[in-house]
């Protein structure tokens, strides 16, 4: 039985965000989008999943329920040096600056075959062991996701499980629409969080 997965799109009206019109793209202001609006989450979670979205950008979040305590899930999620413990699509990962435990550290990820990407250079932005928050931004590599930044938070659910929220913000690549970009990235993120659920339950 697959765990329920919820999607919150940045373009959803319930988030108070209006769909960008073409004529707005050149001079549209930055809009603040809270991707957990409507959800019952701790205040720090809501803060981490609030993004300032500029023109030609989009954001979204994926929610995954996992029937395991937050500490068990966090043991996998916190591995900036070894994302393969739960993420798909990674062929190799190597820390290229620092030790993977501090903000500013860099990793080089090589992507598996079959995907429209080759590599990704990623910087650790947040690693909060107390509140279970990890964030990275993509600063280079061979792919089409420019200015990508991801935040993943864990918090306890009401039934002794864990609620994982992963949100991201990214530029819309030339030639694609916002909807297409969200569809592509959501597919990857959703697949990884479902894998995280299976990996955690398998331990």
């Amino acid at each position: 039985m697959r765990s329920p997965v919820q999607l919150q799109h940045g373009s959803d009206a319930t988030n108070g965000f209006h769909t960008l019109q073409p004529h707005d793209q050149t001079d549209g202001p930055i809009k603040r989008v809270c991707l957990t609006r409507g959800m019952h989450v701790p205040e720090h979670v809501a803060m981490h999943h609030t993004h300032d979205v500029g023109p030609d950008q989009c954001c979204s979040s994926v929610v995954q329920m996992i029937h395991a305590p937050p500490e068990s899930v966090w043991a996998l999620v916190r591995r900036f040096d070894n994302p393969k413990v739960y993420k798909n699509f990674i062929r190799q990962c190597r820390i290229v600056q620092g030790d993977g435990l501090h903000v500013g550290d860099l990793r080089e990820v090589m992507v598996v075959s079959g995907l429209p990407a080759v590599s990704s250079t990623e910087r650790l932005e947040i690693l909060d062991e107390e509140r279970h928050v990890i964030s990275f931004s993509v600063v280079g590599g061979d792919h089409r996701l420019k200015n990508y930044r991801s935040v993943t938070t864990l918090h306890a659910s009401d039934d002794e499980g864990t609620v994982v929220v992963e949100s991201y913000i990214v530029d819309v690549p030339p030639g694609n629409t916002e909807e297409e970009t969200l569809s592509f990235v959501d597919t990857i993120v959703r697949c990884n969080l479902q894998s995280l659920a299976r990996s955690t339950n398998r331990q």
């Binding site: 798909n88 079959g114 995907l115 429209p116 089409r144 690549p173 030639g175 694609n176 297409e180 569809s183 592509f184 597919t187 990857i188 959703r190 697949c191 479902q194």
Partner: peptide, 26 residues
């Protein structure tokens, strides 16, 4: 589903073929 042109036509922008053994997530 949907087909997105992301370095060529891909299912959900991810996979460049429409049928395969495996690929359960798609």
């Amino acid at each position: 589903g949907r087909v997105i042109y992301w370095d060529g036509a891909r299912v959900l922008g991810v996979l460049a073929m429409s049928r395969a053994i495996g690929d359960n997530y798609l």
